[in-house]
Amino acid sequence: MKVETTFWLTLVLAVLVGITALTIFTASLQVPLIIQMAPWLIARGTGVTAYLLLTWLVVVGMVLASAPNRERWRKSAWLFPLHRVLAVFLLAFVVLHISSILLDRYAHIGLLGAFVPGFAGYRPLPVLLGTISLYLMIVVGVTARFPRILPSGKWLTIHRLSLITFVLVFFHGIFTGSDTPELQMMYELSGGLVLVAAFLRYAFVRRRFQVTRQKQQEIS
């Protein structure tokens, strides 16, 4: 394993453990029956952590693909291992999130509700957003891991669905969680971060397109 990958793996793991523990502890302060509500607490903690992982994953991905990084910063050797580590941890925490919510007898989501959009007994529309985002993550992840199963360059087009996935998860978290007011600042900061990153990413793309077009016009 490369030194960069080991470094990012250790750092991300430490941060994730801290975020999950803090989220569960904060949520437990509002729940009198902690033992009975343990699956919900774990589901909420792992869900918040997965959301933050997705936030970092999308932002790092946009920085990786940006023109400044490719032409001037050249930090891909550091950022790509981080991007990959974040993806692995995201998968792990999504699995933990779904598993714990299935064990929660108070949530009334069930196996069908978790994997079939619209069948959840608890807040079906927000849960539906989470289910759709799950399948989008699977498609994006599989095509990124095995790009050769698609025609040349098509995996990148599918990879851009990550931004749509983030939007779905964003609203899934806001409207599913009963403790959303306590996490309002987190949603505002993370949503703003992705919005700024997306704006800058596509602003650079547009600027580059305009420069290229201008040069072509000058040549012709």
Rank of each mutant, 00 (worst) to 15 (best):
S133L: 02
L163T: 14
G121I: 08
F166K: 05
I149T: 13
R123S: 14
R148S: 14
T165Y: 00
T157C: 02
P147I: 07
T165E: 07
S133W: 00
V127P: 07
M137P: 06
V167E: 02
A120R: 03
V140C: 03
V142G: 10
M137L: 15
G130W: 02
G141P: 13
S133A: 15
S162G: 15
A120H: 06
V127C: 04
F119C: 04
R148D: 14
P181S: 10
F115I: 04
V142M: 09
F166M: 06
Y135T: 01
V169K: 08
L168H: 00
L125I: 14
T180V: 13
F119R: 13
F171Q: 05
V142N: 09
L136D: 06
L156R: 14
R145S: 14
T176K: 01
H159Q: 09
G121M: 10
F175R: 00
G121A: 09
L163N: 11
T165Q: 11
A120Q: 04
F170D: 07
V167T: 09
L168A: 00
R145L: 15
D179G: 09
L129T: 11
F171L: 11
S178W: 02
P126T: 01
F146V: 10
A144V: 11
I149Q: 12
K154R: 13
F146R: 08
R160G: 12
G141H: 11
R160H: 15
S152W: 05
Y135W: 05
V139C: 02
S178A: 10
A114R: 01
A120G: 06
L129W: 13
T180W: 12
P147V: 07
I164T: 13
F146Q: 05
H159M: 04
L168E: 00
L150V: 07
V139R: 01
L156T: 12
E182T: 11
A144L: 13
G141V: 12
H159W: 03
G130C: 03
F170Q: 08
L129F: 15
T165P: 01
T143P: 07
